Simulated scan of single mutants.
Amino acid sequence: MKKLMNEADRFVPDVLEGFGAAHADLVQVHGDPWFVTRRDRASGKVGLVSGGGTGHEPLHVGFVGHGMLDAAVPGPVFTSPTPDAIVAASRAADGGRGVVHVVKNYTGDVLNFETAAELLEDEGIAVRTVLVDDDVAVQGSTFTAGRRGVAGVVPVEKIAGAAAERGDGLDEVVAVAERVVGQVRTMGVALAAATVPHVGRPGFDLAEGEVEIGVGIHGEPGRRRGPLEPADALTGHLVEPLLQDLALGGDDEVLLLVNGMGGTPLSELYVVYRGARRHLEDAGVRVARSSVGNLVTSLDMQGASVTTLRLDPELMALWDAPVRTPALRW
């Protein structure tokens, strides 16, 4: 294992201290417990909080700022944050109109956010939860409790954040976020596994010339393994399930998001984007908005995921609304 790190047990604190120093104009990093808040925290709006294990950067800390999250809670590598940290972050994010928790569908995340929500309700803070489960790869899996939350969480946080920023109430922000969850789907592929710092070896083995179709962001098994094919063919294996699951076609408009897993060059992601866009357009789908880059990574995993979100005029306007975070700005 070769990584730019100090001691393995200092990895997460070192990441957060560096992140906070680099983006001190936008965020504030808090320790004991660890969480990140907006530097320009505003009262009088619904607070938006999310979180999950470290190793997926910029998710979630990189999406803290104007037009997106009010706070994010990083756990240990690939491990859910604890309830006390979620409670502290939610208190900080509460502007007097309640807090929305955006939670990816993993057992640890769901349980710990549920516990935190109960504690916050006891304090008089209204909390609502939106569960993100966009991964179409999961079909009767024994490894997960239903579909996993993967890169589709980015448009959920962006669009819900824009709704909160414009002044929507708690129920309205939840309704917008749940509309996105209902219309967003993701499928990924891995070419090589991630190496967790405190483990020191790849999380799974792929033979030379083999890929994992439908891999999860923690290295969970996908739908199948198969041979490495040309990029357009692999991309077709990712896009076809999205078309089927959302019944896309007939002049639907979508956001197309091509996400890198951490170890894939941006040049290759644009090759994937090219293929994905062609597959969608061949099916009669119009790509109205696009995003390409490393947004929901898996440490140094080689691979990519493709996300489609069916858009309507309001969702498109909320996606376009101003955002200023370390990872997204327009």
Rank of each mutant, 00 (worst) to 15 (best):
D232H: 15
P13V: 11
R10G: 06
V153Y: 01
V12H: 10
A160N: 09
V87R: 10
M68A: 14
R289D: 09
S80F: 05
A177M: 05
L295E: 13
A288T: 10
G161M: 08
L257H: 13
V272M: 01
N294D: 15
A126I: 06
F63N: 07
S90P: 02
R329Y: 14
L269N: 00
F35R: 01
G95Y: 04
F35N: 00
L4V: 13
F143A: 14
A164E: 05
A126H: 10
V176R: 07
G209A: 06
A192L: 07
A207D: 13
T107A: 15
V132K: 01
D133I: 04
T307F: 09
T54Y: 05
G67M: 04
E178C: 13
G53L: 10
V239S: 00
A88L: 06
L299W: 02
A247M: 12
R310Y: 04
G188Y: 07
F78A: 02
V176P: 02
L246K: 03
T186H: 15
V12T: 14
L257I: 04
M187H: 15
A304Y: 15
K158N: 00
G161D: 07
T129F: 09
D109T: 06
A24M: 03
P81A: 04
V154I: 15
G260T: 08
V73A: 07
L243H: 09
N259F: 13
G209C: 05
V271Q: 12
V174G: 03
V29N: 01
A137F: 08
P241S: 01
L228I: 11
W330Q: 11
V73R: 02
M187V: 14
R329E: 13
G209L: 04
F113R: 01
D282C: 06
P230R: 14
F78W: 08
L16E: 01
V150D: 00
L248N: 01
N6A: 13
G222H: 11
V239E: 02
P322F: 13
L256K: 08
N259P: 00
V49I: 09
L246A: 10
G182S: 12
S43L: 12
I159R: 00
L248Y: 02
A192C: 06
E17W: 03
M1R: 12
A317S: 13
L311F: 08
P265E: 08
S50Y: 10
T308G: 01
L228D: 07
I86G: 00
R38M: 00
S290Q: 15
V49R: 06
E172Y: 06
W330N: 11
W34D: 02
G226F: 05
G182P: 01
D109W: 09
D14M: 10
L255K: 03
V49M: 08
G167I: 08
E268Y: 14
N294C: 13
D134Y: 10
Q244I: 09
V323Q: 08
L299V: 12
R274A: 15
V154P: 00
